[in-house]
Design a protein around this nucleic acid. Structure first.
Lengths: 226, 226
DNA sequence: GTCTATAGACGGATAGAC
DNA sequence: GTCTATCCGTCTATAGAC
């Protein structure tokens, strides 16, 4: 880059990334062919191999750039609440940790302009993605951020067994994934979601997540208690 | 069927179904080829087309037989708690509705013998499946059962806006999906799940779901309250 | 019902001209 | 960097012998 031709090369690269992202959301990774991507991007078939090498590398790059941004927003939000707590001599509350973690996802998901909406739907299902290389790659991209959030959550819930916190965090990610996949995924409840206002999704989800996090710990001897 | 050759035909058909199911779980629908299925099942390539017609029909049949069983178990459980409540002149509690809906999933998921474990991991991700025909088909298979459960849940929570119940039920399905995909999906929390005892998953999940269902309703004017 | 053989389309990737 | 042309493998599905 930096050459006379670099701007067009950058355009091509970016156009491929965005076309690929949109098609991956719509059809899945396997079902999206190089030919579909290049024709949607308006570039030559060989351009993908030139700029990214293989299809797998392209997939990796599609995820990498969005997750990097997501990690950045999440850690920024966590830094802020931790700094505020330090200044006031208090402790970070569990709800603040959850908000720092889940709000950036919903914000990116509702941000149609930056293509975030598409990507978040894709991200939600990669957690259970069959493709092992994608799963492995995602785990690595997430590792650091997750470590920091889990540590913060443990600290905000002293006395609660870490095993339970871990499981509940896991459940929360599932709930959030479905919250994003939302109503345009499976039309299970046909016409039932009258109020799908995106600005209401965050409070809806947060109250649910907090309720789940704060629920009485399971009694393994009376599993149906409720 | 009923001919001299019917037993072997049935075997072939069943072997295909089960091989397909296992491979769909492991590799996904698109990434699983007919050749993979038939060689895993130890049958001839043409046998799939003979018994099921097309690959899509095979996919449909793989889902259909398991979902039929799941619907049966769920409605049976709901019938039981409704009958018990009627006999005692009481009302069905929300926790009973949730248990009737989610317990059969976890039971099938932990039932390695009947191949349920495999299938439940598959089912969890079809909710966000890109393949539109699969989503449409699943929605139809679920419709009746979901209607009955939503009606029961509404009745058990008089005064709570139906819209909120619907959203929370949606979130619960996401949490349950991740509960099943569990720890063998993404190794996000590397080595962190020390206690993955399946018999403890149900109480863990149920306490979380109930906590979420009973959480204070969202305040759309103070979305971060917690 | 089960097999072999093959049609016919599409997949990822590359060579080599420009 | 971009293009055309092409290699070669795999895919679903079917025809037709047994």
């Amino acid at each position: 880059m930096g050459e006379a031709t670099s701007r067009q090369a950058l355009d091509t690269r970016l156009r491929i990334l965005e076309a690929a992202e949109a098609l991956f959301v719509e059809h899945g990774l396997e079902a999206t062919s190089m030919r579909m991507i290049t024709s949607a991007a308006g570039v030559n078939l060989a351009a993908v191999n030139y700029h990214f090498g293989t299809k797998d590398s392209l997939i990796q790059e599609v995820f990498r750039r969005r997750i990097a941004e997501l990690n950045r927003l999440r850690l920024l939000a966590l830094d802020e609440v931790q700094a505020a707590a330090r200044d006031q001599g208090g402790e970070v509350r569990p709800s603040q940790v959850l908000t720092a973690f889940f709000r950036p996802v919903l914000e990116m998901a509702s941000d149609a302009e930056h293509g975030g909406h598409n990507f978040m739907r894709l991200l939600g299902r990669t957690y259970t993605e069959p493709n092992a290389f994608v799963r492995q790659f995602l785990a690595e991209e997430y590792a650091e951020t997750l470590d920091r959030f889990m540590a913060a959550l443990y600290a905000s819930l002293p006395g609660v067994p870490r095993e339970e916190i871990l499981w509940r965090f896991h459940f929360m990610m599932g709930a959030t994934s479905y919250a994003i996949a939302g109503t345009d995924a499976l039309q299970l409840f046909a016409g039932a979601f009258d109020d799908a206002d995106p600005s209401r999704l965050m409070p809806r989800l947060m109250s649910f997540l907090l309720g789940g996090l704060r629920a009485p710990l399971p009694d393994f001897d009376r599993p149906d208690a409720g």
